[in-house]
């Protein structure tokens, strides 16, 4: 899909999401940023809050996350796996991911 068409689809989906999905404090967004960022949770924990030895990434500034990811990608920051992983992402995707974790809070659905 061409970049401009994709961007248009994403913004239309975003608009539709606001109109159609219950966007209370508890519902996640259905967006390209979420689709990219959900995959990080397997290592970094749901919402970027990690229970174990892999660092948490939630709540860091978008600028610092974007910088870190780009430095992993170009090899100027040491990593065991992140360099390999981020080599797959474009600048645009890195920005979306960084923005997602900068604003995402751990959300739980309350149930009686």
């Amino acid at each position: 899909m061409r970049r401009s068409r994709r961007a248009l689809t994403v913004s239309l989906v975003g608009l539709a999401s606001v109109m159609l999905l219950p966007l209370s404090a508890q519902a996640d967004e259905l967006s390209r940023a979420a689709m990219l960022s959900y995959t990080c949770a397997g290592c970094h924990g749901t919402g970027g809050i990690s229970p174990g030895s892999i660092p948490s990434i939630a709540g860091k500034s978008a600028e610092s996350l974007e910088k870190a990811l780009k430095e992993y990608r170009d090899g100027s920051r040491f990593s065991t796996v992140m360099g390999r992983h981020v080599s797959n992402y474009t600048d645009e995707e890195i920005q979306l991911i960084a923005g997602f974790f900068a604003t995402y809070c751990k959300q739980t659905v309350q149930s009686k």
Partner: peptide, 10 residues
């Protein structure tokens, strides 16, 4: 919801 799925990542 009848909306388009954003492009997935795996």
């Amino acid at each position: 919801a009848g909306v388009k799925l954003p492009e997935p990542s795996y």
